[in-house]
Design a protein around this nucleic acid. Structure first.
Lengths: 220, 220
DNA sequence: CGGAGTACTTGCACAGGATGCAAAATTGCA
DNA sequence: TGCAATTTTGCATCCTGTGCAAGTACTCCG
């Protein structure tokens, strides 16, 4: 598996237990990955977003510059692992919903579960950081885009592959936009101390998705 | 105006006629900008997306490498001018809608007008190209993000600034997601010869927005 | 017309990003 | 323990992106 040396494009931080052999090697790679991501976050906090180099990240993580690039394509990508995990969780939750549940109910339940993510506050922090950095913003947007594709595929399979492509794409895109809006509002409010609880985020998500199900027909 | 030397972040390709003085300078800048964008597109078509350098683009456009970077931050950004123009048009159309028109009607009318864009086919082409290139995808997503911000601001002003931020962000995001979905379906269908007319795109946009106004309550 | 002022272009220098390659180090397992 | 598979690393190399200062083109106005 993964014979290439290039950065794994969808390396799951939440490991999917590939049947057997969790293996020491897999574990070590995960540790390295996490160490690099953590160092990147440290430096971003300490020096600001554009103000540190890959060499510094590698040094702080205790690996060589070259190894950094074996794991990530860029510093911003290393910062996006948290967001990726959050969206991965949403996809997993969705797939775990009972098959007979109405589609929109399942999506709502799955996405509200986002609030249960570990290091939620880090995600909020990154959300705010991205406002000031075009590169990080792009990386984050790309993460959402990938999630959209994954979830879209899951929805399609759930519905037997008979959905109108336009319906499918528009639905998933709109739903994720609502979640993004919810996170944006929540992250902005959570700027202060340790405000911004998981419950608050869940409220925002539910709120936004309610508006969606209502067709946005009641401006407020 | 524009005393900085850095690439203009929102240089309008559709010139807004700044009172007087279209001037030779402004004209030259526009020409250069267009020449660079055109060269980038040529090379992307000829060699594939990651397979050409900024130097080549600059050479083909007849400017120095340094000048290229005075106009764009990257090769991908040069490819995004068409998409930007398209979204700029949507924003302009929206702002031109009568103030007493219901909000959702105004958005629908404005966004359906996207199909009137010049070089629509180029936008479709880029949409398809982006599927295969992470960098271009990021650039395009960023363009949509910027459009979202602009349109969001316009909507907010139109409604007297009293909108719930969550409603505002969710609405605009969802609407643009629908338009994106419409373009995606349209672009995929337009892969063939000169299929994919403006009318087709408009149909997809209207279709997607109808689903949205319906709250996606009728899967199909 | 012509010259002063402004704006754009260019070459140069330089730090840093990104990747192929092959040697060296590490790890897993029989 | 010893070997095969996998990772890490250093090195070389090309490309990106930007500051700077000098050169060139345009604009305005007397």
């Amino acid at each position: 598996m993964n014979t290439s040396i290039a950065p794994a494009d969808a390396a799951p931080l939440t490991e999917a237990a590939d049947v057997v052999a969790p293996g020491r090697r897999e574990q070590n790679k995960l540790d390295t990955r996490r160490a690099i991501a953590a160092s990147a976050l440290d430096l971003a906090r300490a020096h600001g977003l554009g103000n540190f180099t890959v060499d510094q990240v590698a040094a702080e993580a205790g690996v060589s510059r070259r190894t950094f690039f074996n794991y990530f394509h860029s510093a911003e990508e290393a910062l996006t692992t948290s967001t990726d995990a959050l969206l991965e969780l949403a996809a997993a939750e969705f797939m775990a919903r009972p098959a007979d549940e109405p589609l929109l109910d399942a999506m709502l339940a799955a996405l509200a579960a986002i609030a249960k993510t570990d290091n939620l506050s880090v995600c909020g922090e990154l959300f705010r950081m991205a406002e000031g950095s075009a590169e990080l913003m792009r990386s984050q947007l790309h993460a959402w885009e990938r999630a959209e594709a994954r979830i879209g595929q899951a929805v399609n399979e759930r519905m037997g592959g008979n959905l109108d492509p336009l319906y499918l794409l528009a639905l998933v895109g709109a739903v994720l936009s609502c979640v993004k809006a919810a996170m944006q509002v929540w992250a902005a409010a959570a700027e202060n101390p340790q405000d911004g609880s998981a419950a608050d985020l869940e409220d925002q998500i539910v709120g936004a998705l309610s508006m969606l199900r209502d067709g946005f027909n009641h401006p407020r």
